[in-house]
Design a protein around this nucleic acid. Structure first.
Lengths: 350, 350
DNA sequence: CTGAAAGCGCTTACAG
DNA sequence: CTGAAAGCGCTTACAG
């Protein structure tokens, strides 16, 4: 099928001018270096309209211009089957800001390796170069590939904090440390002094940061952290036995890395006849992507949509900057969903 | 810093061959038309490795012809804030099939008019031309724009049945008529003879088709449709009074256009002390995008993911066809979610 | 077996 | 004010 597109030379011929003039007019360079009569300009736009001319982004890019294509690359499928567990809120923000910045979005679906995994480089080719720059996310990110992107100075912004030893890279991420410290600070300021912290056994960046926030809140108030009250557990390991042990150790508040652990802690405590906030306080430092979020639970809310939008703005900004300007890291604060699980400590029932 | 990326000519120079040979070797065209000595080929690969050469995908596309970009255009935001009410399932299918067909996806976010509405044409220019072809969806589709696309022979596939008087266009859609007829046929074959049909006051294409399916099932069995039992109502108008009137008219089964009306009918019937399937049968011809779908309700399930995938395949196929080949319309059957609201009619309780 | 050359559709100096 | 021309980095006939 492939209808032949009109080219710049077709427009030029129809308007009776040279191709270079068409290029200048279309790119708005008309009124600067080269002044072109309003009449000529009008003829050119008429020809553009008549032929339905649209510049070829590929040719533009090759000739040195940009193509106003923003890439989106995810190591996992961009649209997982279950939207609840997905990148969806990020995409909402990315789309909104792409509209605002007048960029189109390019989803790299050609980047699948034969085994179904996604890779930026296939046979040594950087597939992202189709776009002016790209937004990356996904926990599976290969450090090797990021290093190579950095080496060839391809402009990209990561969603999420990423470390590539020896390099700095641009990213946008929730302020897990600071927001975690704020939340834990609220717990401490309510008068709690013995806080348990439940975290998962393997910690990826955001979770490391949340734990750091937990410690930071104590440190800022000159309070000690009892390392014995920090438990690395999977959700199913949060048993009544574990929770009873915490209470026995004088714990009045339980802070968890994410909502799943908090839910488990609640169930376990209830089996012991203990309820939040009457008997103990409970707060989670991460939110849940699953939709039915317990409205009672006091938890952080990760501003995913704002993060997506901010990533687009940062990328567009980088595209306009000198190639060697330092990459920026942006931390967006989380909101605190004030539930009903947080209160001042009461005297323990004996 | 970082020396300029090596080009094919650099590789050629280092290997002592012409640029064309490098291109052939790198693209594996070496052993076909042009036979190149193993030794030469080895020298070239050595040079590639030594220089860290990576072919520029942009230049490749320009020289190659098409850009293997598939556009996705929606009249509403592609990613609405609430994923439940969204195009999400279509996108899942589109992404999966784009991967299979080795195309990248282009989301048109540059197509917003100043007033925030999306239009394919801005200032007379067809923005979709950035891609080889495009998939369109959205109920707000402007017939004018579609007509113009057809006139300029731009290859596109619509998701959903669309009418443009005087033209045929390619689309993929759920087989609302046939699947509706199948569902209603099941109701009839259970022995029900007086079926009520609840539909919304304004009917867009899929809903028109469902009603047609309702009639078709009767027609095929030589059974009459009582027009007085077809009610055009909004969900809030499905009151106990209305449902009582239906029962009084001898109705033993209620079929609705979509799940919302079915939910209302159920509630209204319960107020009358009537329950499905004991007292009457209930079935819906459309499904619900909202996630907590009542598992009891017998309803059609629209194969959105399959529709998205099929649309991609159809578009790719059209791109390979002669420009004037007839557009194809594809109907995909719905699955029937067998709930618990359907049974043979019982003698009415008096 | 291999090279010189045209061309993909643009942008951008450079000449008038 | 406007045009002729080089060039971006490739692919692909075409010619030896």
């Amino acid at each position: 099928m492939a209808a032949l597109r009109p080219r710049q030379k077709d427009v030029a011929a129809l308007a009776g001018v040279s191709q270079a003039i068409v290029s200048a007019v279309i790119n708005g360079r008309a009124n600067r270096a080269m002044r072109i009569s309003r009449e000529t300009e009008q003829r050119i736009w008429d020809a553009v309209r008549q032929l339905g001319y649209v510049p070829d982004p590929i040719a533009r890019k090759l000739a040195g211009g940009q193509n106003r294509l923003l890439g989106v690359f995810t190591y996992e499928p961009t649209f997982p089957v279950q939207p609840q567990t997905s990148n969806y809120p990020f995409l909402v923000g990315i789309e909104q800001e792409a509209v605002a910045q007048n960029y189109n979005l390019l989803l790299f679906t050609q980047t699948n390796a034969p085994d179904g995994r996604r890779t930026i480089y296939t046979a040594g080719v950087n597939n992202l170069r189709l776009a002016d720059g790209a937004i990356l996310f996904g926990h599976q990110a290969h450090t090797d590939e990021l290093r190579q992107l950095l080496a060839e100075r391809y402009p990209f912004v990561f969603i999420g904090r990423r470390q590539v030893p020896g390099h700095e890279l641009a990213y946008v991420v929730a302020a897990h440390v600071e927001s975690g410290a704020e939340m834990v600070g609220q717990v401490l300021d309510l008068g709690h002094r013995r806080l348990a912290y439940l975290r998962s056994p393997v910690a990826i960046e955001p979770e490391q940061d949340r734990e750091e926030g937990f410690r930071l809140a104590h440190q800022r108030r000159g309070l000690p952290v009892d390392e014995r009250l920090i438990a690395r557990v999977r959700p199913e390991e949060v048993t009544p036995t574990l929770v009873a042990a915490l209470f026995a150790a004088g714990v009045t508040a339980i802070v968890t890395e994410q909502t799943g652990l908090a839910d488990q802690a609640r169930v376990a405590a209830r089996e012991l006849g203990k309820v939040a906030p009457g008997d103990f306080s409970l707060a989670a430092l991460g939110d849940s992507m699953t939709l039915p979020l317990d409205p009672d639970l006091t938890t952080l809310i990760i501003p995913r949509q704002a993060i997506g939008a901010r990533a687009v703005r940062l990328l567009v900004q980088r595209l306009a900057q000198a190639e060697d300007s330092a990459p920026e890291q942006i931390y967006l604060p989380c909101a605190i969903a004030t539930g009903r699980t947080l209160a001042a400590p009461t005297a323990p029932r004996l």
